[in-house]
Simulated scan of single mutants.
Amino acid sequence: MSTVADRVKTLRKQLKLTQSALGHCAGGISKQAVSQWERGITEPQWEALNALKRSRGVNPDWLLHGTEPMLDLDPPPTTAAAAEESIHALTSEKRPLAELLDDLSRRLATADPGVREDVTRLVLRYLENPPAGARIAKAIELLLGQDEDPPTPL
């Protein structure tokens, strides 16, 4: 398999998924987008690769470059207990999570597009590695600048 398109199709068939189902595993990508991947028109973006890694243990390096193995042997745990622990850590802050997200949304709306992209990447990194939340929250604060009432770090 020499192309990304070949590997996407092989992955889908090995996992016994439809194009729609693979798109769902890739973070809600449409069937048409998966079809474009398989035909070599486009390639999966970073967010889709990470969603595939989280949902199915797909090795992004294999998908993009053919580097073995196809599937990571030790995918990150996605148990209900791990999810509950992450939610508890977020909601045990001084401010409710909904308030933090509203504040972030408000501040992102006034930021320039490059900053919005950087913040989006940082939020996705946090979702992959919650223990790094304090460092990531600090990086987001630096990107957005100080607010009159800065939010409590994620």
Score class of each variant (00 low, 15 high):
Ala51Gly: 09
Pro60Lys: 09
His65Val: 01
His24Tyr: 02
Gln146Gly: 06
Glu99Arg: 15
Ala111His: 01
Glu43Tyr: 03
Leu49Gln: 06
Arg121Glu: 13
Gly145Arg: 03
Arg106Phe: 09
Thr110Trp: 03
Gln45Glu: 08
Ser105Val: 02
Val34His: 08
Arg54Ile: 04
Ile29Pro: 01
Pro151Lys: 04
Arg106Asn: 07
His65Met: 06
Pro131Trp: 14
Val123Asn: 06
Ala26Asp: 11
Thr67Tyr: 09
Leu52Met: 15
Leu63Arg: 06
Asp149Thr: 13
Ile41Asn: 09
Leu127Glu: 14
Ser35Leu: 07
Glu128Asp: 15
Ser92His: 03
Thr79His: 03
Leu122His: 11
Arg106Cys: 08
Glu47Gln: 09
Ala134Arg: 14
Pro150Ser: 10
Gly145Leu: 05
Thr120Leu: 07
Leu100Ser: 08
Trp46Phe: 08
Ala132Leu: 14
Glu99Ser: 14
Thr42Ile: 04
Arg39Met: 15
Ala134His: 12
Leu49Thr: 04
Ile87Gln: 03
Val119Arg: 05
Pro153Met: 08
Ala98Met: 13
Ser20Asp: 02
Leu122Trp: 12
Pro130Leu: 09
Pro151Val: 03
Leu100Trp: 08
Ala89Ser: 06
Gly40Ser: 14
Gln19Glu: 14
Leu97Glu: 01
Leu154Arg: 07
Ala80Gln: 01
Leu100Cys: 08
Arg56Gln: 14
Gly28Asn: 09
Leu97Gly: 00
Gly28His: 13
Gln19Tyr: 12
Asp74Trp: 02
Cys25Pro: 01
Ile140His: 08
Ala51Asp: 04
Asp118Tyr: 00
Leu127Ser: 10
Glu93Cys: 04
Thr3Arg: 12
Arg121Pro: 00
Pro60Ala: 11
Arg121Ala: 14
Met70His: 03
Arg95His: 07
Asp6Val: 07
Trp46Asp: 12
Arg106Pro: 01
Ala26Arg: 06
Pro151His: 02
Val115Ile: 15
Gly133Trp: 05
Leu22Gly: 08
Arg95Leu: 12
Leu11Ile: 07
Pro75Ala: 00
Leu11Arg: 07
Pro151Phe: 00
Leu122Glu: 11
Arg135Gln: 14
Leu11His: 05
Leu154Lys: 02
Pro75Arg: 00
Ala139His: 04
Ala51Pro: 08
Leu104His: 09
Arg95Gly: 06
Ile29Arg: 15
